[in-house]
Amino acid sequence: MKKWQCMQGCGACCYLELSDRCEVPTILNAEEFALYQSLIGVDGWCIHFEPLSRRCRIYENRPRFCRVTPEVFEDLYGVTPEELDEFAIQCCCEHISDRYGERSFELLRYEYLVKHSVDPPPEDSPPFD
């Protein structure tokens, strides 16, 4: 079974433009939605995203909606813990395709990572070490 992982140097999920994320207003509460909106930079990317390294500057303190955990995904998307890996992998593939292209090196690299991964690091550990 494939296990979801965050891929170092990707950052596709850090593109927050609401026109690309039409579900956001419906899944976040008012306080989280206000926070989400405050994070959108003029270019559509999160203001804490470092484009050169494709890393999050606040990874350890990122908002709840930026975390891939069974609890968060069940609350926001209604995804059961058993469905989490498949759902999160699909989300990542969609975001990577949207940002970098359906035939991009990033997507090929992510698909390889997921296919060949045995044990992903814990969700709380930064993927960018």
Rank of each mutant, 00 (worst) to 15 (best):
D98R: 12
W45S: 13
P51Q: 14
F73P: 00
P81K: 08
P51Y: 14
F65T: 09
L107V: 01
I96D: 03
V79E: 01
V79F: 07
F49V: 06
G78K: 12
G101Q: 01
G78D: 11
Q90K: 06
F49K: 06
I58M: 08
R55H: 09
D75E: 14
P63A: 10
L108M: 05
F49G: 03
E74I: 05
Y100I: 04
E50S: 09
C46Q: 08
F49C: 03
L52R: 14
G44N: 14
L107Y: 02
F65K: 10
C91Y: 02
N61M: 10
V79N: 11
C56P: 07
R109A: 12
G44A: 14
R103W: 00
R62Y: 05
E82S: 13
P70I: 10
E106P: 00
I47W: 09
I89D: 03
R62T: 05
C91T: 01
S53T: 13
F105S: 04
L107M: 03
I58K: 08
I89K: 03
L76G: 07
G101F: 02
G78E: 09
R55E: 08
E94Y: 01
T80N: 05
T69W: 09
P81R: 13
R109W: 02
L52K: 14
V68T: 14
F65Y: 15
E60S: 13
T69Q: 07
F73R: 00
H95Y: 04
R64A: 11
S53R: 11
P51H: 14
I47F: 12
S53I: 06
L84G: 08
V68Y: 04
P51E: 15
C92F: 03
G101V: 03
Q90N: 04
C91Q: 07
